[in-house]
Computed example of a mutant assay.
Amino acid sequence: MNRLLDYMPELDIALPPGALAPAAAFASAHDADAEMAYGAELLEAGAGNGAALAPFLAGLVARSGPAGRAALRRPLGRALMKALLQSAMALLPFDSKAAQQRAAAIFGLELEGLSPEDKEFALARQFIRLARELIDGALASGAAGAQQDAADAESRVQAALQQAARKHAPGLLHRAAQQEPAGGRWQRSGKRIVVLNC
């Protein structure tokens, strides 16, 4: 009996080159747990009239740490919330077959064989991945400074959104390109003019 209690199988496992170390594996598992919890919260927040959606998204920004909480009081936070809400409104709700097919195409996911509830949850998790990447990208851009103007915050958030969409929702970029008027789009960023989607 003591031999069974003393046996520690994790010590017998040789990790192949490039495999996750135990601490990294734990962090990855923690991220997956958080992603599932946020996905469930998103589905609740997006249900009904969606009045709980903005507070949920603000909470997601705040949970990213002190930089996220500080950003919510500045132009970056307003630009970030606008981008998150627009993205959510373009994708939610996930509760009908047509909505699930549209969202799956935007996210580039294959959901065949899943139950409607599992499809809904998979789409919610993918939106959380997109949102977290967008938040992290915007905060990492150094755009949280108190002196930043609204145009600069907007351009930094749009750059972070494009980067996040390339990875997690390529259909959003395609959709935005279809909605662009001929001649492209530009916006002022401080003393610069930034040409978008050229």
Rank of each mutant, 00 (worst) to 15 (best):
A131Q: 01
K167Y: 02
F26E: 14
Q187A: 11
G142K: 09
L20M: 13
G145C: 04
D152G: 10
L60F: 04
G113K: 07
A88M: 02
N197K: 12
P9E: 08
A143F: 03
G145N: 04
D152W: 07
R69I: 01
A124D: 02
Q86N: 14
L80W: 02
A19M: 10
A138M: 03
V195D: 02
M8R: 15
L43Y: 07
A90C: 08
L84N: 01
N197I: 01
L123T: 03
L196W: 12
D31Y: 12
V194M: 02
A140D: 14
R3L: 14
L196N: 09
A21Y: 09
G50D: 06
A52M: 11
Q158R: 15
A23Q: 13
R129N: 06
R166C: 09
L72V: 03
I13H: 11
A177I: 08
A29M: 12
R102M: 02
L109G: 01
E44L: 13
D149W: 08
S96V: 09
A146V: 13
A54K: 12
G46Q: 09
G183P: 00
M81W: 00
S155A: 13
K167T: 14
L85G: 04
R129E: 02
I128P: 00
L43P: 03
G50A: 07
A160K: 04
C198L: 10
A88P: 04
H168W: 11
R73L: 03
R63N: 12
A146E: 14
A104N: 03
L42W: 09
M81Y: 00
A143G: 14
R125H: 01
H168A: 06
A131C: 03
L109I: 05
F107M: 03
F107N: 01
K82H: 12
P181W: 08
A52P: 01
F121H: 11
K119Q: 15
S87E: 08
A88G: 10
G171M: 06
A25E: 12
E133Y: 04
S115E: 12
A103I: 06
L80F: 04
Q162D: 15
A153K: 05
A153Q: 04
L123V: 07
L172H: 08
L53R: 05
C198H: 10
L84E: 03
L161G: 06
A153R: 02
A164H: 05
A140V: 08
Q187M: 14
P17C: 07
E154Y: 08
V194L: 05
R156P: 00
G39K: 04
A51Y: 11
L123G: 02
A70F: 03
A105R: 09
G145K: 10
A105M: 00
P9C: 08
L173S: 08
Y38R: 13
A99E: 08
Q158L: 15
R74H: 03
